[in-house]
Design a protein around this nucleic acid. Structure first.
Lengths: 229, 229
DNA sequence: TCCATAACTTAACGACGTTAAGATGTTCGT
DNA sequence: ACGAACATCTTAACGTCGTTAAGTTATGGA
């Protein structure tokens, strides 16, 4: 009478309302996630209220609690949807990219910034502290892990092509991850020169990744790294 | 009877309560900012409530409104204090650094990450969207502008030393800014490998900046930049 | 048919941001 | 020295929010 009812499959935070038509409403779960995403787009990440989400979905204020234990669980569902879209965007960028390892990394970087700027509402929610920090929402962590894995793998390939063996590419990957992430968050949070256009920023991320990689592949990650401690 | 009273000098959001001893309380304005900063450190940026801040300062819930028009104005005051500390930290890192231009940029990058990780409460508040975005809080913008100016100037010096003329260093500076910023936010927001220690991250930022600069100084910023649009 | 239960609603609690209106101490011109 | 003007803070209230408790209604299997 109280908590989440049919959630026999807690695998995914998002959707997964395939079986039953959920009688009263068509499909409340996804309706709530969609309303939350839209509200985030309109009023920003902090402007999302559970009651307003419920209002937009046409249900009462308490209805969401049958699908999400918490407000943060609903936000996490939006974030998971965002990570899924992000993962697709990253994968697509590699499909379109050339074979040159550096070009592939540049494509990932440019796609990173493009996603953040094209879908800021998703991006902002995805990297809210609480979303990833806690170990709830395992399916969300799974999706983001997969995306990062692809980057690490691309870095490893680039290093192998550059004549390295399979030395740990994690630090370099973190660094390459940080460039578009830093550009995107700086832009979205304000303190970047207001003349900068989204496309310029995307191009900057892509262009930076190339020479950055070239430098990093040779100068970093050899033997005992100086940044090891 | 209603709004901010003696604020004849709206120059700085922080402190500036030099003149009068503010009779009842010793110095409520700074007491509020300090309580807010402490509360941010304890419960995170979102866990700050105006009422709790007032409670800790030993005043009623409405008292803060005589010093800050808004909750966000109080947060902005905390952010401004953070930017001030950050600016000092950046300046000090240059004083301690060697003369080599790349080393100076590396020092700025390492100091950036160190500050973010040593004072996460300040850092998180500083880069909240609303803090910089709106053009309120001009003194805050002034401090952050000064800090960025120093970075741009250091980049320019490095480029001159590398044989360039005074071509616009802004894009390169943005990029170099993005590296430690991306590392810091990724770390603070969760999704960086949990094995990474703060010092390792700081060293990574410093080590990365060197070769990154070397690459960027020569490959980017020549003539018509490919990222120009 | 009927009843267990899933899917929702109504109602309430405490906390919050914010504003209005009043109380209280201080300062300064006279 | 005194009282007006004012700065400083309080009490009270409004609407909104997240969350929980308890009740109501529709559904589908026995």
């Amino acid at each position: 009478m109280k908590k989440v009812p049919a959630k026999s499959t807690p695998q995914s935070v998002v959707a997964r309302s395939a079986g039953k038509p959920a009688y009263h409403h068509g499909d409340l779960r996804v309706a709530l996630v969609e309303a939350a995403a839209q509200l985030t787009a309109e009023k920003g990440a902090t402007g999302v209220s559970l009651r307003e989400v419920a209002r937009r979905a046409g249900v009462s204020q308490a209805a969401p609690y049958h699908y999400f234990t918490d407000k943060s669980a609903l936000i996490a569902a939006v974030a998971e949807e965002g990570f899924r879209l992000f993962d697709q965007s990253q994968a697509q960028s590699l499909i379109n990219a050339a074979q040159d390892p550096a070009a592939r990394l540049a494509a990932l970087g440019a796609a990173y910034v493009r996603f953040a700027l094209d879908r800021p509402h998703y991006f902002k929610v995805m990297f809210r502290p609480h979303v990833i920090e806690h170990q709830k929402y395992p399916s969300l962590v799974e999706v983001s892990r997969r995306t990062f894995e692809r980057l690490v793998e691309t870095v490893r390939a680039a290093r192998v092509a550059a004549g390295h063996d399979d030395a740990d590419p994690l630090a370099v990957a973190t660094l390459i991850w940080a460039v578009p992430h830093g550009l995107a968050t700086l832009y979205l949070d304000g303190p970047i020169a207001e003349g900068t256009t989204p496309r310029a920023l995307e191009a900057l991320a892509g262009a930076a990744t190339g020479p950055l990689i070239a430098a990093l592949l040779t100068e970093l990650g050899e033997g005992e790294p100086p940044w090891g401690i």
